[in-house]
Write a protein that binds this DNA or RNA. Structure first.
Lengths: 383, 383
DNA sequence: TTCATTTAGTTCACGTTGTAGACTAAATAT
DNA sequence: ATATTTAGTCTACAACGTGAACTAAATGAA
C-alpha cells in the first residue's frame, strides 16, 4: 500500500534527489543542483549542508575557476563513511566486495573452490569468514556498513533460494545463515548481474542481461529498475521453449534453451571439459567446437526472439560463459534475431558482451545498497 | 527524472491516497480512512472536506448504526462530476463508453462495421461522431470530461500506431485525428484489455491478459501496473517462437504462435468462417474443429510456457477469440503448462476466461483516466 | 587601484501542510 | 439522567520549501 507523505518523507525524497543528481553528474555546485533538481537555492543549501554533515557528500575545491563571478563549491559523493557489502556464492568460487558510496571497490576477496555438493551451512561458513575479513578491512578504513546482499545462482522468492541445480541445493534461506551487523538480502545472480552491468558495466536503462552458466538466467532492467515479476522469479530464460520436442531438460520438459545452450550442452557437443578449452578450440577453428557454438547461438537467438517479443528489448548483454564465447556466438544469434524480428519491429536489438564478467553479480549485490542509500539517505542514519 | 517534492506534491499524494482507499473499500468514514492511510484524523478531515467540495467524494448516510458511539459519516466516490471517455477502433466495430468516477458505465455506444481496408481518416470520422454523441450525453448529465484514451489493435509507440495488420494501417497517429476537448492518448488494445480486466473483470494485481484476434497480443500487469517494456511494445505474444521451422508468418518468421493459434489459422484448420461457427462445431463435437482447437491450445501452451518463464506469471486471462473457445482450449493449454513448468516451479499458472469479452479494451481505456484522477485528483481541477 | 558586474551561497520572514491533543457531537449502555 | 464510546473539528505547533534580500568572492573595466 502507498504510504502517506509527511514532512519527513518530503525531505527524504529531496535528499535522495540531490544525492541522485550528484551521483549522475559528478562534481556539482549547489547552484547547479538547484538548477537540476528544480529546488530553490536555499533548500539545496540546507540539504547539501545536512548531507555533508552526515558524511554522504564531501566538498571539493572551487569549481569554474577563471570565469566571472564567485566560483561555486563543488560537492561529490563522499567515500569516507558508507560501506556496502556484496557477496556471491557460485559453483566454482565465493566472492565478496565492499563499495563505498562513490561506487569505488574498496576491498574485495575471492575464494576459488568447487562448491558442488557441499552443504549450504558449510559453504556459508566459508563465506562468513570472507565477509568478516572484508568488514574488518572496511571498519579499519573508517567505513560503516549500510547493507549487504548475497547473490546465489538460482531463483529466489521471499528470501528463499528455491533451487540451485548446480549446487544441488533446494529451499535454502541462504541469507539467514550469515551473521552480519546488518540484515542480508538474498537475490538471484542473474538479477544482480543485470544491476551490476547497469551501474558499472555494459548495461543501459533498458536491457536484458543473460547469464549463461550451467543454468541460463536473465535479469531484465526497465527504466533503470529491475523487473522481478509477480514473485521475483522472472527471467528464467533457460527454460524458454526453443523446440517442443527437443532434448530432455532437467526441468522435466523438452527443448528448453538450456538443453541447447547451457554450459553442459555446449561443452559436450564441442567435446571439451572447460569453457577455456572451448575458447582455445574456437580460436583454432576446430570444426566441432564451431558447430557446437553455432547450434547454441541458433537456440539462443530463438529464445531471445521470444524474449524480445514479450519484453520489448533493444539491448541484450551476454554474460557468464556467453561472455568469452561472444565473438563466436553473437553473429549467429544476431542473424536469427534480425530474420525473425526485423520485418515487424524495424529495429533489431543490439547484443553486447558483459564487461564485468564474473564480478557482475557481486558488484550488483554491493551496488544495491549504494543505490538504496542514494535514493533515501535519511533512512541510513550515521553513527 | 524525479521531481522535487514540495508541499503541493505532498498534498496531491495524500489526496490520491485517500481517494484510492475509498476506491478500494467502498463506503468509508473519516475515522476509518485515518486508520487505513496512517494520516491523522485532522488531516483526513481536511482532505475529505476538500475532496467533497471538489466533487470527487460524496457523503452518504451514517455508518455503523446500532452500535455504541457516534456513527461516522460514510463517503463514497462521487459519480456526479468527472467523466472519462474510452474509445476503441477494432476490425468489426467502433465502440466507446463514458465512465464516472465510481467506475459506473454511464453511456456507451457501438457501431458494428467491417473496417478492414477503410482509411484511418474515414474510420476516425465515424468514431468522432460516436464520441461527440457520448460527450453530449455526458454533458447533459452534468459530467465534465477529464480525459480520453483510444484503443487500437496494434503496437503503439510514442503515440503512433506502428501497424494494424488487420486494418491494413501503418504509422498512424490515430489519436491526433480526433477533435475532443481533452488530449486523447493512444494505446494498444491488449494493454487496455489487460487494464479493463484488472479494474472491472477477471484480472488480479499480477496477471497476463491474452487477446486472441487475427494477431495475438498480450498485456502484462505487475503490481497492478501495466508493464510496457522499453518502448511500449512489450506483449507481442503472437510472435513468440513455438517452432523454429513451423508455418510461415506474416511477420516474415516461421512457427510464431500466431501461425498456430491466430484466428485465421484456427478457423482455416477447423474449416469454418467465423468464431461463432467454430463454437457450434465444437459444441457438436465436430472432430475437425476439436483437432484445430487442440493444436492451437498446444501452441498457446508452449508460448505461454516461455512467457511464464520470462515474466513469472501465476494468472493468465484469455480474451478475444480465446474467450468463447476457453472451454475447449484451456484444458490442453493448461496441461502443457503443467508438464513443462510444474516440476521446476511447483505451481502452475491459473488460466481464466475474460469476463468482459469485447468490451475489455474500451473499459480499460475509460478506466485509465479514472485511475489517473484517483491517483492525483489535484491535477484535474474542477470547473 | 577602485568599483561595477556577475555568480554563489546564506539568512530570514512567510506560506503551506501535517500533527497532537483538547474539544465538541452524537450515538448506546447503565 | 448520566457514563461511556466513537466520530469529527479546532487550534497551537512544528517541519519544510519559497523567495527576496543580503553577503561573499570572483573577474573586468576605468
Amino acid at each position: 500500500m502507498t504510504q502517506p507523505v509527511r514532512h519527513d518523507a518530503m525531505r527524504a525524497r529531496n535528499l535522495g534527489l540531490v544525492l541522485g543528481e550528484v551521483h549522475r553528474a559528478a562534481p556539482l555546485t549547489r547552484a547547479a543542483l538547484a538548477e537540476l533538481t528544480g529546488l530553490t537555492k536555499s533548500t539545496v543549501s540546507k540539504l547539501v549542508g545536512d548531507l555533508v554533515d552526515a558524511g554522504f557528500l564531501a566538498e571539493t575545491g572551487p569549481a569554474r575557476v577563471g570565469e566571472r563571478g564567485r566560483p561555486g563549491v563543488s560537492v561529490v559523493l563522499s567515500g569516507a563513511r558508507v560501506a556496502s557489502l556484496g557477496l556471491e556464492v557460485n559453483v566454482d568460487y565465493l566472492a565478496g566486495c565492499v563499495l563505498d558510496l562513490s561506487g569505488t571497490v574498496r576491498f574485495s576477496r575471492r575464494i576459488e573452490r568447487d562448491n558442488r555438493g557441499r552443504r549450504p551451512a558449510r559453504v556459508l561458513r566459508s563465506l562468513q569468514k570472507l565477509a568478516d575479513g572484508l568488514l574488518a578491512e572496511a571498519e579499519a578504513a573508517g567505513l560503516s556498513l549500510a547493507g549487504a546482499v548475497l547473490a546465489v545462482s538460482g531463483p529466489v522468492a521471499d528470501g528463499v533460494l528455491a533451487s540451485a541445480p548446480n549446487l544441488g541445493w533446494r529451499d535454502v534461506r541462504a541469507a539467514d545463515l550469515l551473521r552480519l551487523p546488518v540484515p542480508v538480502s538474498l537475490e538471484n545472480e542473474a538479477n544482480l548481474g543485470a544491476l551490476g552491468e547497469l551501474w558499472f558495466g555494459a548495461g543501459s536503462p533498458e536491457f536484458l542481461y543473460v547469464s549463461g552458466e550451467i543454468g541460463i538466467g536473465a535479469g531484465l532492467v526497465v527504466g533503470s529498475e529491475l523487473f522481478r515479476g509477480a514473485r521475483g522469479l522472472a527471467g528464467e530464460l533457460g527454460h524458454v521453449v526453443v523446440s517442443s520436442s527437443g532434448p530432455g531438460c532437467r526441468c522435466g520438459a523438452r527443448g528448453c534453451l538450456e538443453t541447447y545452450a547451457g554450459q553442459e550442452a555446449v561443452l559436450t557437443a564441442a567435446g571439451v571439459r572447460t569453457v577455456e578449452a572451448l575458447v582455445r578450440q574456437l580460436a583454432a577453428d576446430d570444426p566441432r567446437a564451431v558447430r557446437a557454438v553455432a547450434a547454441a547461438a541458433e537456440a539462443l537467438g530463438l529464445a531471445l526472439t521470444s524474449a524480445v517479443n514479450l519484453l520489448d528489448l533493444d539491448r541484450i548483454v551476454l554474460g557468464g560463459i556467453f561472455g568469452p564465447l561472444f565473438r563466436w556466438l553473437a553473429p549467429a544469434a544476431e542473424s536469427v534475431l534480425a530474420d525473425r524480428l526485423g520485418p515487424l519491429r524495424g529495429s533489431v536489438p543490439v547484443l553486447a558482451p558483459s564487461t564485468l564478467g564474473a564480478t557482475a553479480a557481486t558488484l550488483g549485490a554491493a551496488g544495491t545498497t549504494i543505490h538504496r542509500v542514494l535514493a533515501d539517505p535519511a533512512s541510513f542514519p550515521v553513527r
